[in-house]
Design a protein around this nucleic acid. Sequence first.
RNA 1: GGACCCGUGGUGUAGCGGUGAACAUGCGGCCCUGUCAAGGCCGAGAUCGCGGGUUCGAAUCCCGUCGGGUCCGCCA
Length: 606
Amino acid sequence: MFRSHTCGELRDEHIGTEVTLAGWVHRRRDHGELIFIDLRDRYGITQVVFDSLTAAAHKVAEEARSEYVLQVRGRVRPRPAEAVNPDLATGSVELEALEASVLNPARTTPLYISKEGGEDEALRLKYRYLDLRRERMQRNLILRHRMIKFMRDFLDREGFLEIETPILIKSTPEGARDYLVPARLHPGKFYALPQSPQQLKQLLMVAGYDKYFQIARCFRDEDQRADRQPEFTQLDMEMSFVDQEDVLQLIERLFIALCRAVVPHKTLSTPFPRLTYQEAIERYGSDKPDLRYDLELVRLDDLLGDTPFQVFRGALEQGGQVKGLRAPGCASYSRKQIDELAELARIGGARGLAWAALPADGGEVRSSFARNLAPGELQAIVERMGGQPGDLLLIVADQPAVVAAALDRLRRELASRLGLIDPNRLSFAWIVDFPMFEWNADEQRWDAVHHPFTAPRDEDLPLLDSDPGRARAKAYDIVLNGYEAGGGSIRIHRRDIQQKIFDLLGISRETAMAQFGHMLEAFEYGAPPHGGIAPGIDRLAMILADEHTIREVMAFPKTQQAVDLMTNAPSPVDERQLEELHIALRRPLLHSSTEPLCEAAGWGVT
RNA sequence: GGACCCGUGGUGUAGCGGUGAACAUGCGGCCCUGUCAAGGCCGAGAUCGCGGGUUCGAAUCCCGUCGGGUCCGCCA
């Protein structure tokens, strides 16, 4: 045994006892004949005192430096009253070193362990094992552990079974790009890593395991974001003999209990509000609105039916909308500040931003567009938007999707600028009644909004024939503080409806059989009504940990280019490995055949 | 595929056309028995991400490139 206690354990009750600690040198304070070392492990920090009277141990302390691994045998003693450190859990005692040894020295670390923040993230990722020693990452990984433990215990009590599904599965061209794995035994064929265990969990329902869950690793070969990594973890769930209400209520109970258990200092309002997809877009311009603040969008179309203002008129004539957002107290914004907002609206796709500043003293309105309006129109807009003296009114006119995207962006920016966001508030909400399909203009066909096994709402079944674009799905997302925290649906279990959906999606019977034959066949052997959901564990952990990227709640994340800076994956492999896999590298497709890249890379030509 | 931001001793920053490239911290040495960001003195440590260009002169300006980040597209 290297240690009798951890570095976070010693208290007054241990005074007088002899203990052995092992850990890393967090800080060292050298007073010559007296040396203090803060010894650290993941449980905490204990101050060890080395007196020159104990010569051998004192010698070790003289040589020790930051991050050396030490073992210290000593006696626990109370600190002098004036030397008690209330910031340390162990701060009322200290260890008087009797014997010490260096278990391992350490080079000067490229990161400070005891001082966090500021450094280039590439450095943190390259030396992740050092970064993980720091308090922030420890706290986050411990929180994540507690979350997952809570989920397992909760679902176990609810009668769920945790069942593992394969990582090597069949590729389907639907959805995100697959990560592929070459099949050595089958030249030219590939496995895919799961984007989610979607089909497998449905087959478990057919198999009668009516309450399934899994802490499932998922893989998607798409471009990264702060909240998206190539591999991530979902709480994947599926249940039989349930309707949408059953799924929502179970998850709501789980999340409420989870948050109260692991982040009791945060406030959450229950029950979770429910918004239809339509309503969310209409009121917030987003299907994952941040409900910690209001700032709702206001529809202005009906006030402007005959407006002479060409921008508004043109948008309305082309089937667009005019909507506004009230920025309370922002009338004093400078031209530059307003230009910044306009730039944000442009990122959302808008061609411009109309604005009107209502002076706090009730004076004349400053506006980019008022002079173009008919008499009374400005007044009507101000009234509809609830404009008060001192407010800035922002208006976008365009196609509905553009208006929504632009105002969503402005809404989030304003909330942040105006300090409307309470960081300790958890605003969960359900978004329900997603549309079944969206029109794919490029391919001239309908795409599934969720996935092809999502059931339509019963009352919308007739719409599949008459007006598929209006058909709503038994699909639901749970959103939290402006993030999509999970999504799911009730699945189709009737063969005839499934066929109809495939027809609408332009999936031929041959294609359906080739890609989903196992599913369709399974459904002919008594598939129960079933549905599920898959909350994203990384995002949830990120939000509960007050972090802004999921990298902060993952032990070994990858960069935006999907590179692991610690191991340098991905990397080239031996020609021999490729041969065994029947793979010949091909000259990459380039815009210009004279591009020198392929030669520089030394790639052969097939 | 695209837009924007960042890259200067081990680490974090300053410098933004002429400096001995500055400061803090860490590192090495010396002093110091109550510190907890210990303190004091001395010292070493930088091809200013890389390549090219402009200029009498480039960390500084321009072009390209690499790496990191944020976002758009993408993510059933």
